[in-house]
Amino acid sequence: MSARFAATTVTDEMQIEFARLVTSPAARARFANAPSEEAPALADLSSQSVTYYANALLAKRLHEIRRLLPSIGRRGDLRARFAAHAMGFAPGGHGRHREDAIAFARTLGDDARLDRLALEATRGDRFGALAIAHGHLSWWFRPWKHARLWSGRLAVPRRRTGESEQRR
């Protein structure tokens, strides 16, 4: 391999590996433990640098979401919930903040719906409920009034998210 070709490969790989790391918490965790295995071109970069950038990126996204969703934005600390949302969703291009906000609002809406259904199912006169949210079919079932309530959830096939979705 010529030195020129090697430099070319390294530059390209550095950018791709960096983009992958800052958009994937799982990849960042692996990078922190084994940098030369997870992202060889960035092995000389500290994992703290990558993590700091990724966290700043999340903070910027959340800031935009608070601006675009004023009702939700008035709520308290959304960082943990937003980080969970961001693990599987990284919109790009023009209008990405709007798409991010819409998806996050949908996520919070699913949270609220699941909590409400679970709570309603505890009423002894209800036979149960079904909901599809967060990639799962959640169910609550009571064979007759005031009988014991059974509940569970099953993963349902859905469009892939996360790393594979971000590569286009």
């Binding site: 950018q15 791709i16 960096f18 983009a19 800052v22 990126l57 910027k60 990284a90 286009r168």
Partner: peptide, 14 residues
């Protein structure tokens, strides 16, 4: 800066 690489959207200036 770059904001995307290899199909990954960073969404911010790198």
């Amino acid at each position: 800066a770059f904001t995307r690489a290899g199909g990954y959207e960073i969404g911010h200036l790198a």
